[in-house]
Write a protein that binds this DNA or RNA. Structure first.
Lengths: 135, 135, 135, 135
DNA sequence: GTGGTCTAGACCACC
DNA sequence: GTGGTCTAGACCACA
């Protein structure tokens, strides 16, 4: 009745990692959606299945799905499952852009306060993007 | 006797602002030190005085001073009070630089994930530094 | 023999649409009845046929027919199928009227709470009816 | 340290009422904020206190506060409590206006489908606003 | 089977 | 004391 697609598997969730577990799940799903490995209409793993896969409580996964739904990345239908929303990838990209702008703002504030020039910051940014691309 | 210096007065601490209250206190002191308004050897306000000034609990200020001491910006002497450390301003600047690099790293990660190019990020950074200078 | 009539075909049922799937089926049938495309005595498609047409589970259609029967829009006969009830169209219209009144009640409550005047609400209603007519 | 204000008391929460319990809590707080009985900066009852008052689980209240925070009506600070946000009342009004528009849209759709004229709908709306004012 | 809601209880960071 | 997160387990509506 509905497009199947359970081959979701992102890196292990770790309680040691910074930030709440459910945010790690959110980030994992967003990565799959942004990367196109999860297309609009595709079904996400069910709450229970993903909870078992990630060895995490059902509630934690549910919370992640709720946040993804609020962000317009997925939608959930009772009795059916959760699915990637139509503009899902766009949503993720837009939010990533906002996050980048926020981080740059913080960097500019801290850097200028520490006596760095705009050019210093740009050089540092270049080296960071270079690192990012390698990974 | 020790060099006096209570004229510490930074913007009001706000519960509405993001981050723990004590971090706001830490940031306030660091700003004074980095700006040279608090020189090495200067005494900081006593815990109780600063708590009263900022309308904040004593333990919040205590925690802030502890963090500042850990960061090598100030040092405390039993019964005497807290004083600006010798390399205090340098410490603050070095840490600000690290903070800027961290933020740039986060921005690069988020931006690249959102499909931005290095040049896009640099443009955004420039506009943010411009904003920062105005303020 | 009974009057034949399988030409029931309403827009695809979508999991993305708000509300349970069976309500979408109910709404679809009601639309056909209210519009006169299904006259009293006409046979509805069999459960299995409609389920296949709409690419929906059989139990979803069954549930929809049950609700339609409860609403007095259709009636079912063991072994024969389901048929449009005599006063079916009237029933649908009466229920639509009730639904409209309910929605207006909710709108009045929310609007007044938000500080809108009766005239404000009437203006908004006019613009909505204008939109509705266009479509 | 912070503006006190616990005299929050809205109608009893009922599991029999339609909609989730936490939405009833959300609606209750929004009503207080919109009515000005809870001003910006005022403290809301703590999670535990309100849970006890309403005879509801802590989690239910927490969920309500989370939604209110997402809606920009309140903000929460770990260790301090939850407080009415600065633009809180405006937020509530804006959202109420959107809700009213949605309801009017649904009413227009249902009403037109049931054969009502625009004037019929306006008359019904007038009678509903009259009812609303009495209460 | 699915997601949606509610519950009870834990531990942590912050004040 | 406060809110923030995670857990285990229940019952319901929907497919």
């Amino acid at each position: 009745m509905v497009r199947e697609s359970h081959p979701l598997r992102f890196g292990p969730i770790s309680a040691a990692a910074p930030g709440p577990l459910y945010e790690q799940v959110v980030a994992g799903v967003k990565r799959e959606v942004a990367g196109g490995r999860l297309a609009p209409g595709d079904a996400l793993p069910s709450l229970r299945v993903l909870a078992a896969d990630l060895m995490v409580s059902l509630i934690t996964v549910k919370r992640a799905y709720e946040e993804l739904e609020r962000d317009g990345v997925i939608y959930s239908r009772q009795g059916l499952g959760a699915f990637v929303a139509d503009g899902g990838a766009d949503q993720v990209r837009r939010q990533g852009l906002d996050a980048a702008r926020e981080a740059l703002k913080a960097a500019a504030k801290a850097g200028l306060a520490a006596g760095l020039s705009e050019d210093d910051l740009i050089d540092m940014l270049k080296s960071e993007t270079a690192m990012g691309k390698q990974t």
